[in-house]
Amino acid sequence: MDKTELPWNNPVVEANASAPAARLGQYAQPPLRNFGSIDPYNRISREAKDMIPPPFEYQAPTSVSEALALLGKNPEAKVLAGGQSLIPLMRFRLASPAMLVDLNRIGDLAYIKEGEGWLRIGAMTRESDLDQSDLIAKKYPLLADTTHVVADPLVRNLSTLGGNLAHADPANDHPATMIAYRAQIVATGPKGERTIPASEFFKGPFETALAPNELLTEIRIPAPGKGSGGAYVKMERKVGDFATAAVAVQVSLAKDGTLERVGIALTNVGLVPIQASAAEKALTGKKPDDAVLRQAADLAAKAAKPESDARGSEEYKRALVKTLTVRALRKAVARAQGG
């Protein structure tokens, strides 16, 4: 790559704050800075050139229909939401989409609304907005737990719920949570909307049920009734890391204190988030005493399909799932009993 290809060689002008952008003219002023003989590549680092994405077309539609039209016409396009996974992939050149369709200028995709038995969250709602929502803190502890441990605060200021799901990284935190909640994912395409149960949304690593011309527009979580509670318990090597393993639990208790509905799903112990169906079934209708919870945790650990890697051996991760499931169940049950 020669220097003329550097993406930062365009001139910058000082502009009058009140002047409309269009009237700034032809950038008659010289660039503020001239590199002269300095090669910025050498100055930054030997690897810096690998950290610049390859060129791509960029479109920033302001409505869902405009975005859908762009996706329909450009099958090679990739959707840019918060960008906190996609932009790193592009910098590493692991992804090199011909076009980015940036959803950040579509204002009406960011909302948190409750009504008619559902919590509806716009796909472009950022993690930090979920984290700061009183409604979610009060009524949706599983979601509150989850959003609080996604990456780090700086990433959460940009990353979105829709992006976390549509990216479908098996290490992402929200997929398991949405399966435990029995959430519905709304996909909008040229023919309108369809809803996909979270348990059927994740098809493989980075693969979802979304068609290339569809957008994930909304997430619907069933509003929990009385006697419901949930918890997300994650083991990470340090703050901001992906989960070594994590467990999402959502329960509701019947009047007699037995478990009426149980959702359990596991993060990063398989190629997709895993619904621990046998464990869910073993708990349903039972009193949530510790022996019963431990038995279910054994079943959850059996359902896990972890692989050995830098975060731990297969054996360790399986044992971890067991422990985290017991902890998440205890926490969820305590919350359900408390409210």
Binding site: N10, P11, V13, A15, L24, P55, F56, E57
Partner: peptide
Amino acid sequence: GAVKAAEVESRLL
């Protein structure tokens, strides 16, 4: 506080 305008390539971080 200062307004700056430029032509940028889409891939410029």
